[in-house]
C-alpha cells in the first residue's frame, strides 16, 4: 500500500463523516415527512466514493446509480444541496426535479445518478470516448451495484470500452444484495463483476471496499493505466450497506449477525484506526467529528429554511431553450 499523509487521511475522514452525517439526516428527515418518495442510503459504502474520488482530477467524469449520495458529495456536491434536493427545495441540486435517485453535479463533472439499472455504464464509456475524441486526458468512472452486472448494458459497455481501449473504470460496489435477493443466488460466478472481466480480456480485481486507502490505491493504478492509453479496468469493491435497500426495506432477509459483523469493518472505523495509527491524536479526531457535526447541522437547517422550488419548474428544462413547447 502506498503511503498517505496524515492530512490526506484526515480529509478523507472528514468527507466520509459528512456523507455519513448527511445520509443520517436524510433518514431522519424522511421519518419526519420532510423527505418524500424514496431514498437509497449508501451508508457503509463511503470508502468507495471517497477513495475513488481521491484518485481523480476535478475534470474527470463520474457516473452513479440511484444509490449515489456518496458519489455526488465526494465530487463536491454540498450536503445542503443534497438535502435540499431530497426536500424538493429551490436550492436543491436539481431544483426538486431529480430527487434522491438523480443527484447530479455537472459543475463537478459528476454526470448524474441513474435509476434504470446499468443504463449509465454505457454513458461512462461515452464520456471516456469523448475524452479520446477531444484529446483530453480525462478519465471516467461508472459506479454500479453487484446487481447491475447481470444486465446487458454492463456487458455491452465493457466490451466496447475494452475493444476501443477507452479511459474508463468500472467500479462495482458489491454489497452482497440486489434489492432483497443475495447476488450469489442469481449469479453464475462468485464475483459478479471481477469474474466477468476475463471475458473482456481484463484482469480480475477484487478489493476491500471498506478501506479508503485500498480503494484509493487500486483506483489510482487504474487511472494511471487509463491516462496512459492502457484502456479500461473493472474493480470489484466488497462492501455492505448498513440500512435496507430503500426506505421501504427493513432488511429482514439478512442472516443474523451479518450486519454486526460488517459494522466491525465499518469504513469509518477502519479509517479512524488508521488515523490513530498514523499519529493523529484523539483530540484532533474529535475535533474533526465535531466540526462535521456542525457542518451537517447547518446544512439541515439551511435546506429546511429554503423555499420549495417554484411551481413553474414543472414546465421548464425539457428542451435546450429551457421550455417545454413541442408544437405550435
Amino acid at each position: 500500500m502506498t503511503n498517505s499523509t496524515k492530512e490526506e487521511l484526515a480529509s478523507w475522514y472528514d468527507q466520509m463523516l459528512v456523507i455519513r452525517g448527511t445520509e443520517k439526516a436524510a433518514y431522519d428527515l424522511f421519518m419526519t415527512g420532510l423527505v418524500k418518495g424514496t431514498t437509497h442510503l449508501a451508508s457503509g459504502h463511503e470508502a468507495v466514493a471517497v477513495g475513488a474520488s481521491a484518485a481523480l482530477k476535478p475534470e474527470d467524469y463520474v457516473w452513479a446509480t440511484y444509490r449515489g449520495h456518496h458519489h455526488a458529495m465526494a465530487r463536491g456536491l454540498s450536503p445542503e444541496a443534497c438535502l435540499a434536493e431530497l426536500m424538493s427545495k429551490e436550492t436543491g441540486a436539481c431544483r426538486g426535479k431529480g430527487g434522491s435517485m438523480h443527484l447530479t453535479s455537472a459543475a463537478n463533472n459528476m454526470m448524474g445518478s441513474y435509476a434504470i439499472i446499468g443504463s449509465h455504464i454505457p454513458m461512462a464509456v461515452g464520456s471516456a470516448w469523448s475524452a479520446v475524441l477531444r484529446k483530453t486526458d480525462q478519465v471516467s468512472i461508472a459506479f454500479f451495484g453487484d446487481g447491475a452486472t447481470n444486465i446487458g448494458a454492463f456487458h455491452e459497455a465493457i466490451n466496447l470500452a475494452a475493444v476501443w481501449k477507452l479511459p474508463v473504470i468500472f467500479i462495482c460496489e458489491n454489497n452482497l444484495y440486489m434489492e432483497y435477493t443475495p447476488i450469489s443466488a442469481v449469479t453464475a460466478v462468485q464475483h459478479p463483476a471481477a469474474d466477468r472481466a476475463a471475458a473482456y480480456s481484463l484482469p480480475r480485481i477484487v478489493i476491500d471496499g471498506n478501506d479508503v486507502l485500498v480503494v484509493r490505491d487500486e483506483v489510482a493504478k487504474a487511472v494511471a493505466l487509463a491516462r496512459a492509453g492502457g484502456g479500461p479496468s473493472v474493480i470489484e469493491c466488497l462492501t455492505y450497506r448498513h440500512y435496507g435497500h430503500s426506505r421501504a426495506d427493513p432488511a429482514k432477509y439478512r442472516p443474523e449477525g451479518e450486519l454486526e459483523e460488517w459494522m466491525m469493518r465499518d469504513p469509518l472505523k477502519v479509517l479512524r484506526a488508521r488515523l490513530v495509527e498514523s499519529g493523529v491524536s484523539e483530540d484532533e479526531i474529535t475535533g474533526i467529528e465535531n466540526a462535521v457535526d456542525a457542518v451537517v447541522k447547518e446544512a439541515i437547517e439551511r435546506a429546511k429554511d429554503a423555499p420549495l422550488s417554484d411551481i413553474s419548474e414543472a414546465f421548464t428544462d425539457v428542451w435546450a431553450d429551457g421550455g417545454m413547447q413541442w408544437r405550435n
Binding site: M123, V125, W129, S130, A157, N159, L160
Partner: peptide, 21 residues
C-alpha cells in the same frame, strides 16, 4: 464501427453528447 450492441451505441453516444461531442 461498433459491435452489435445497441445499448452501448446509444448509451455511449449519449455520454459523449453530454461531454462536448
Amino acid at each position: 464501427d461498433t459491435p452489435i450492441s445497441e445499448q452501448a451505441i446509444v448509451g455511449a453516444a449519449m455520454g459523449a453528447a453530454m461531454t462536448g461531442v
